[in-house]
Amino acid sequence: MTKLDKNDRLIRISLLVVAFSAVSVLAVITIFIFEQGTPIMFKYGLKSFLFGQDWYPSEKSFGLLPMIVGSLMVTFGALIIGVPLGLASAIFLTEFSHRRLTRFLKPVIELLAGIPSVVYGFIGLMFLVPFIRENFGGPGLSVLAASIILGIMILPTVISIAIDSIRAVPDSYREGSIALGATKWQTVRMVVLPAARSGIVAGIILGMGRAIGETMAVIMVAGNAADIPGSILQPVRTLTSNIALEMGYASGEHREALFATGVILFIIIMILNTIANLTSARQKKR
């Protein structure tokens, strides 16, 4: 069909090399993080890393459990806040609002996705933390503050992906349901949402990945105590903030332990990514 001269083959090969850049970057990152992080995990035992409760690197005590629990807690908290708000907004904007309002609000919400995370953290520090301290007690820097800030941060992601997947549901579904005498809400609940489910789930998982991977905003509002919080008003440290807080000065085994923190974070994210990929692949197949 086309002239396949020597040049073209050369181009094809060099493009193939370039095309592997992303894969090789991923590979190099994985190798470096694991190379730096795993030796110390095996030296002190995987169990003491994953289930140890004391993080005192100067005493060679590297328990990461408080940070693992911390990351899961704030991520869960973020979902509790972000998902209902996000889903409700998406449903409202696709099914119940004026088309013109949606045309205006959707881009506005998407624009806000670009606001840097430090700005979210700053707003949390200035307004949310004092509010929590004065009204609920405790230091204000807390699981609650981190959850709310992360919940807000994942809103744009959750909303825009949910909107896209709800929109992708064919109108004939809705018409069929309405024709059977269902109200609009019944249609949404029983027909549209189930049809859009896997897209919505993929959006939630993406938001979850963003929440668990967020660093700077969390450092600013979480208080960073390396202890399993007893209540949502107590400070908490996540895996990401553990790395960022101590990376500046760490050396020797302390630094390796921070890379080990990175390894655990990496594994969690990879699992989430795979799940997200699988769900969105399922959505595409439909």
């Binding site: 592997f20 992303a22 190099v28 921070l258 990514n273």
Partner: peptide
């Protein structure tokens, strides 16, 4: 290749920083 790119997109920035 696509899987690599998608995974890379999901990696938290602090991991890029460490790397």
């Amino acid at each position: 290749i696509r899987f690599g790119a998608e995974c890379l997109a999901g990696i938290p920035s602090i991991i890029f920083g460490l790397f």
